[in-house]
């Protein structure tokens, strides 16, 4: 064991560096643009297909999109799958603010419920090709701004979260 005693200034600098690197790790979640393109096209296909091929294709397309989402979720969980998606890291779930996780879960449940409960009350056709227009807008948003949206969500999810996960890393290191 070393006899070296770290002076306070050096200790404070080491703590700042540790916190900075930890934040870099938290902010590292990113993925290839093609992932956004695939999901953008999938959303467009799901919403636009009934306009061109009738309501009969709706269940088939929904099934394909669900399979895509499941495959994506499975790939996220393994290093090899993550590498295929262009993700160099996987952030620990404990780094995500519990409040953000709760809000996100509630938002997902609300969207699903709205889809099931609200859909029968919507008029069949607001205007011709309404699904195509909605699909094009949503798909293009995902393709063009998907990475930016993901970065924004990441910073929101991790913000103010320094006190979770590891005691002593958050305070006194500024």
């Amino acid at each position: 064991m070393s006899d070296r005693v770290t002076p306070p200034a050096e200790a404070a600098r080491a703590l700042r560096d540790i916190e900075r690197l930890r934040a870099q790790g938290r902010a590292s979640e990113q993925q290839s643009r093609w992932v956004g393109v695939v999901f953008g096209v999938a959303i467009f296909a799901e919403l636009a297909a009934p306009d061109f091929f009738g309501d009969g294709v709706r269940s088939g397309i929904s099934l394909a999109v669900t399979a895509l989402i499941v495959a994506y979720a499975v790939m996220l969980r393994t290093p090899r799958g993550g590498a295929l998606l262009g993700r160099p890291t996987r952030v620990r779930r404990s780094e995500i603010s519990p409040r953000f996780a709760r809000v996100a879960q509630m938002a997902i449940v609300a969207v699903v419920l709205l889809g099931f409960v609200g859909a029968p009350f919507l008029p069949d056709h607001l205007f011709p090709y309404a699904g195509t227009v909605a699909g094009a807008v949503l798909g293009a948003t995902l393709i063009l701004f998907g990475r930016g949206l993901q970065r924004g969500l990441n910073s929101l999810a991790m913000r103010g979260d320094g006190k979770h996960g590891m005691n002593g890393l958050a305070h006194g290191s500024r």
Partner: peptide
């Protein structure tokens, strides 16, 4: 420090 916030 870099690895502490990631699973891998």
């Amino acid at each position: 420090s870099l690895l502490v916030s990631v699973e891998w």
